[in-house]
Nucleic acid binder design. Structure first.
Length: 121
DNA sequence: GCCCTGACTGCTA
DNA sequence: TTAGCAGCCAGGG
């Protein structure tokens, strides 16, 4: 059964390095435009191993930010700081007020070759 | 099966 | 322009 979470992970995995997507964008690609919060929750609950950038099948959760361009992690430790580091390492620049310029770095998926699995199953 | 939570959004004041 | 607030959806208790 392909759960909503699985779909979220599938979408996030397609975000290329050096690009970012908003929670709402990911939700929309999962065919649930209003489930942005659920996307955040899905990322929060993903398998620990897949959250590690060093993992071969890691889910690039750090490429997902709020629509306004700011990092909205509320997790314990300095998750937000790590997210910023990971993004900067990929060449994503931050503005003076600590936000990402979505005009420049927003991921624009090519729907034509969108291999997202079907909604049901 | 109901109620609560959450890494969001868009609208209103 | 900034701050609040209600709506949104899926999973866990």
């Amino acid at each position: 059964m392909m759960t909503f979470f699985d779909r979220v992970y599938a979408v996030v995995r397609r975000i290329p390095s050096g690009r970012v997507a908003s929670y709402g964008q990911v939700a929309a690609l999962c065919e649930h435009p209003h489930a942005a919060r659920t996307v955040g929750w899905a990322l929060n609950g993903m398998p620990h191993a897949l959250a590690d950038p060093a993992h071969p099948d890691a889910i690039p959760w750090w490429r997902v930010i709020a629509k306004t361009g700011h990092i909205s992690i509320t997790g314990r430790d300095d998750a937000a700081g790590r997210q910023r580091q990971l993004m900067e390492a990929e060449g994503i620049a931050f503005t003076a007020d600590g936000r990402v310029d979505l005009q420049r770095f927003r991921w624009q998926p090519v729907i034509a070759d969108w291999p997202l699995p079907p909604a049901h199953e």
